[in-house]
Computed example of a mutant assay.
Amino acid sequence: MTVLVTGSRGRVGSALVRTLHERNFDVRAGSASPDKLAFPTDVETVSLRLDDPSGHAVALDGVSAVFLYCEPAGIEAFIEQAEAGGVEHVVVMSADAVLRPGAEHDPIARGHLLVERALAESSLTTTPLNCGALASNALPWAWSLRARGAVALPYPDSYADPVDERDVAEAAFAVLTDPARRGRSYHLTGPEALSFAEQVRVIATAVGRDIPIERVPPEVWRANKPDFMPGDIADALLTLWAASTEPVPLTHDVEHLVGRPARSFTEWAACHVDTFRAWPQPGRRSS
């Protein structure tokens, strides 16, 4: 069995490639920038943009299973080539936004729904992994620390279910390699519901320094959103955060798939202390 992993430069995709390789599965790492991949030399790499059908045939040649990031642009062409090439199973990394009421009108869910529905209408066996909030969503807080000396949040008391990307990769490995787990959807969450303020405190404990939180008006956060984030996504996030005033529901699907409890946010923070240590000490200028 050869597995094509799309988005192999991402945190989940790269971890999955390494897991498949270490456990002696044939894996092909697809990326828009294959020259920037850093895998062992015996891992096959291929140029692949999901929104550019010109590379689909080469990437899918001889592939029996695919780990697919949700990219709605070009999904019909990708499915057509996968069916023609004999692909049997697609594991799609989706979002739990598709499980919420009104998902059809939610910009966060819309693209994921388009991909899931296109796959469901195809002849391919499909297994969606509907992921909760990825733990790495906290990484941009390090930029805020460097710029402002505090984590700027519009809704510090908003709750999420941070799931470690390594757990998503291991869950994907489980459903890719065990036929008995194919063809149903899994809702992947972390093991605990934490507010943003609680997540900041976990990071502060790992770093060994107090990390201030600065509550900013939603419109200020919106005006300073990351350049890569579309405006409608930013608005949808603000709406979601404003409404998430209670701990979110959790599942045990990670534990069911990988055979152990999901990694805690404390474990994630311990692996990223260097990222959050690199900000100016009070009373000192950064060079």
Rank of each mutant, 00 (worst) to 15 (best):
residue 156 P to T: 07
residue 156 P to A: 10
residue 157 D to I: 00
residue 159 Y to N: 13
residue 159 Y to E: 01
residue 160 A to M: 12
residue 161 D to K: 11
residue 162 P to A: 08
residue 164 D to I: 01
residue 166 R to Y: 05
residue 167 D to E: 13
residue 167 D to M: 02
residue 169 A to E: 07
residue 170 E to I: 03
residue 171 A to P: 07
residue 171 A to F: 01
residue 171 A to R: 09
residue 172 A to G: 14
residue 174 A to M: 08
residue 174 A to P: 08
residue 174 A to F: 11
residue 175 V to P: 04
residue 175 V to S: 12
residue 175 V to Y: 11
residue 176 L to I: 04
residue 176 L to Q: 11
residue 177 T to R: 06
residue 177 T to A: 01
residue 178 D to E: 13
residue 179 P to V: 07
residue 180 A to D: 13
residue 180 A to Y: 06
residue 181 R to E: 00
residue 181 R to M: 07
residue 181 R to L: 13
residue 182 R to C: 11
residue 183 G to A: 05
residue 185 S to W: 03
residue 186 Y to W: 06
residue 186 Y to H: 03
residue 187 H to G: 00
residue 188 L to H: 03
residue 188 L to I: 02
residue 188 L to N: 08
residue 189 T to K: 13
residue 189 T to R: 09
residue 190 G to Q: 10
residue 190 G to Y: 06
residue 191 P to M: 08
residue 191 P to L: 04
residue 192 E to Q: 14
residue 193 A to E: 04
residue 195 S to Y: 02
residue 195 S to R: 11
residue 196 F to P: 00
residue 196 F to Y: 12
residue 197 A to M: 04
residue 198 E to L: 05
residue 199 Q to G: 11
residue 200 V to G: 14
residue 201 R to T: 15
residue 201 R to Y: 03
residue 202 V to L: 03
residue 202 V to A: 09
residue 203 I to F: 03
residue 204 A to D: 07
residue 205 T to S: 14
residue 205 T to R: 15
residue 207 V to H: 14
residue 209 R to Q: 14
residue 209 R to D: 05
residue 209 R to N: 05
residue 210 D to N: 09
residue 210 D to K: 09
residue 210 D to A: 14
residue 210 D to E: 10
residue 211 I to G: 12
residue 212 P to H: 14
residue 212 P to Y: 15
residue 213 I to T: 15
residue 213 I to L: 09
residue 214 E to Q: 15
residue 214 E to Y: 09
residue 214 E to F: 07
residue 217 P to K: 12
residue 217 P to F: 04
residue 217 P to M: 03
residue 218 P to M: 07
residue 218 P to E: 06
residue 219 E to P: 02
residue 220 V to G: 06
residue 221 W to R: 07
residue 222 R to F: 14
residue 223 A to Y: 02
residue 223 A to V: 06
residue 225 K to R: 15
residue 225 K to Y: 02
residue 225 K to E: 06
residue 226 P to D: 07
residue 226 P to L: 10
residue 226 P to N: 13
residue 227 D to G: 10
residue 228 F to N: 11
residue 228 F to D: 12
residue 228 F to K: 15
residue 228 F to T: 12
residue 229 M to S: 05
residue 229 M to E: 09
residue 230 P to K: 14
residue 230 P to V: 08
residue 231 G to V: 14
residue 231 G to M: 14
residue 232 D to Y: 12
residue 234 A to K: 04
residue 234 A to T: 08
residue 234 A to V: 04
residue 234 A to N: 11
residue 235 D to N: 11
residue 235 D to E: 14
residue 235 D to H: 02
residue 237 L to C: 04
residue 237 L to A: 07
residue 238 L to T: 04
residue 241 W to L: 03
residue 242 A to W: 05
residue 242 A to T: 08
residue 243 A to I: 00
residue 243 A to K: 10
residue 244 S to H: 05
residue 244 S to Y: 00
residue 244 S to N: 13
residue 245 T to Y: 02
residue 245 T to Q: 10
residue 245 T to H: 08
residue 245 T to I: 10
residue 246 E to R: 15
residue 246 E to M: 08
residue 247 P to A: 07
residue 249 P to C: 09
residue 249 P to M: 04
residue 249 P to D: 11
residue 250 L to H: 06
residue 251 T to F: 01
residue 251 T to N: 10
residue 252 H to S: 15
residue 252 H to V: 06
residue 253 D to V: 00
residue 255 E to R: 12
residue 256 H to T: 08
residue 257 L to C: 01
residue 257 L to S: 10
residue 257 L to E: 07
residue 257 L to D: 00
residue 257 L to G: 01
residue 258 V to N: 09
residue 258 V to P: 01
residue 258 V to D: 03
